[in-house]
């Protein structure tokens, strides 16, 4: 799983958790308070509470979760990232409809005309509205999701080492045979180990000097020493450096051995 998608998932998780514990938006005056929770509006007027369930808010919440989960369960295609962005756009639109609903049905202009036991009361008290952390997290989530969709989740430049780089790095601390065995294992190529030498078909990869009696079946061999390597193709000998020897060994192994499964590319 790609780091970019994990980042998107973590921001979505932060958004979900903050919205559970704090309102998305609040309207506050001395006598009247409106809070947008994930289930709807929590309204307090002069100490009496009322909760208005608004399905749009809950749907926006669920869509944000679905948007983050889509790239987890569907990794084979880039359309998964497009679908994630589309779902989050729908969540944003649902949030907009919540505010349209608020201005249409729960509009509060800073005054109240309330019936009383003997008439009515007109109260004018100024109010403040403000957005809380969930909005800002939603904006960040939207930005990251859009970035993932446009870059196919490849915007973090730090990448892991390629197989060749890993093998060449390993040579510096271990012997070439171990590095080649690691690379062959990762590539899924079958090989046999005879007296510390690797044999792939009629290719032998050996350490140290060539002992003819050990390599009766081998037509070609690559021999590593401390300083360089030697390639023998049956008739002639070529002297190579250790790194060249490893590259040659791997490329020969790909032809002579049978590579296993091909590594899946995520969000292709």
């Amino acid at each position: 799983m790609r780091l970019e998608v994990i980042i998107q998932l973590l921001i979505a998780l932060a958004f979900v958790l903050t919205w559970i514990f704090m309102p998305f938006w609040s309207l506050v005056s001395n006598i009247y308070i409106q809070k947008l929770t994930l289930l709807g509006f929590s309204i307090t007027f002069l100490g009496s509470n009322y909760f208005l369930f608004v399905p749009n808010a809950l749907a926006a919440f669920i869509y944000a979760i679905v948007s983050a989960v889509i790239p987890l369960v569907w990794r084979s295609s880039r359309y998964s990232l497009y679908l994630s962005l589309f779902t989050l756009s729908l969540a944003a639109m649902l949030l907009v409809t919540v505010f349209i609903f608020q201005s249409r049905y729960l509009y509060y202009g800073g005054y109240s005309i309330v019936p009383t036991a003997t008439g009515y009361t007109y109260i004018r008290i100024p109010y403040r509205t403000y957005f809380n952390a969930p909005l800002y997290l939603f904006a960040v989530l939207f930005a990251v999701t859009a970035l993932n969709a446009t870059t196919r989740a490849r915007w973090i430049m730090v990448r892991k080492l390629s197989l060749i780089e890993e093998a060449l790095t390993m040579v510096r601390v271990k012997d070439p045979i171990s590095a080649i065995r690691m690379a062959l294992g990762r590539l899924g190529i079958q090989y046999s180990v005879i007296n510390g030498s690797l044999v792939i078909g009629d290719l032998a990869i050996i350490m140290g000097g060539v002992e003819k009696e050990k390599l009766k079946d081998a037509k070609e061999y690559i021999s590593f020493t401390d300083k360089n390597s030697i390639y023998f193709d049956g008739s002639s000998i070529t002297e190579l450096s250790i790194e060249q020897g490893i590259l040659l060994a791997l490329s020969k192994a790909l032809i002579k051995g049978k590579p296993g499964r091909i590594e899946v590319v995520e969000y292709a």
């Binding site: 001395n30 006598i31 003997t118 008439g119 009515y120 007109y122 109260i123 004018r124 008290i125 100024p126």
Partner: peptide
Amino acid sequence: FYGDPMYIGFY
């Protein structure tokens, strides 16, 4: 009411 104007109508 809380420092802001209010009017109470009655009959």
